[in-house]
Nucleic acid binder design. Structure first.
Lengths: 157, 157
DNA sequence: GAATTTATCTTAGATGCTAAGGAAATCGCA
DNA sequence: TGCGATTTCCTTAGCATCTAAGATAAATTC
């Protein structure tokens, strides 16, 4: 049992389509960040904090992830803290470090902004079979891993 | 005939994976832009100019696409022009307008920066069947359209 | 326990954005 | 046609955020 017919696509077609999606998504991220009173970099860092779940990340982790200097991270955490998105406290185990943890309610605030957009994407997925969704999801996961490896490599010569 | 087995994924799993990919890609775009001596917004605008092919776009088109003010676009075009990425000339048909066109060789310069990363993605695609690539490509195209519609709607109240 | 390394913060300066407004070209309607 | 309204881009002032360089304090090494 197959899904609907689609026109054939080469990898380079796929990459072009992806570039377009990324480009549009960057603009979208800017808007989401603005709606939350944050900068785009702030939002990327907060996503990383959320990913840590009930745990926490350090300021240095955020600098590495967002590819910004530690000086910039100080400002980022200041804004996230002032906005009630994260808490900052010194790590008792290593008092040079700063533990940044998500404020539980903040995830909902971000979700409220992403929600309407995510709903549109979910609607798009109704046109796809579970198998197809699995393929797409798998690709996202691998591509993100590829991108992260590439970023780490190409900036540590 | 099926591709390899994949773990099942719900739409919300897919969206989470996508969010992660987007987040990483934003950082990647920052790096690419830096390698070209541009800002991320400059690069997004130049992508839009490239998309126009042998044609051209106006300054206002770029402002709408990148969601920045027309004042910012003046600076963006200045940098792209100074960097040899685009030409700027008044539109003879409507002399208020400015025609922004890509310098032919500039596409290659950008490609040189994206190339190594695209090669990694192409490598990833070798693990997918043509049918699967078609599904993924199709999804990218539709998602980009969804995102653009959403952006246009949510910023024109 | 002194020297080195690590992690964060501070400061000064540069960059890129917005908001507001101006100038020139076009449109639209009497 | 003529003249006000609109569109398009540019300019300016001010603000937010980044980098680079260096300071500070804590941990690690030998």
């Amino acid at each position: 049992m197959e899904g609907k017919q689609r026109t054939a696509a080469s990898p380079s077609d796929a990459i072009s389509a992806l570039d377009d999606l990324i480009s549009t998504s960057v603009v979208g991220q800017q808007e989401f960040a603005r709606n939350l009173g944050l900068s785009m970099t702030d939002l990327i860092c907060f996503a990383h904090v959320l990913e840590a779940g009930d745990s926490w990340v350090t300021a240095g982790d955020l600098a590495a992830r967002a590819h910004v200097t530690t000086g910039a991270v100080t400002g980022i955490i200041n804004r996230l803290e002032r906005g009630g998105f994260v808490t900052r406290e010194p790590d008792p185990a290593d008092r040079r470090r700063v533990r940044v943890a998500a404020v539980p309610a903040a995830a909902d605030r971000v979700q409220a902004v992403y929600g309407p957009y995510h709903a549109r994407l979910a609607e798009l997925f109704t046109q796809y079979t579970p198998d197809e969704i699995a393929i797409v999801t798998d690709w996202f996961t691998r591509a993100a891993a590829v991108a992260r490896v590439y970023l780490d490599e190409s900036c540590a010569p």
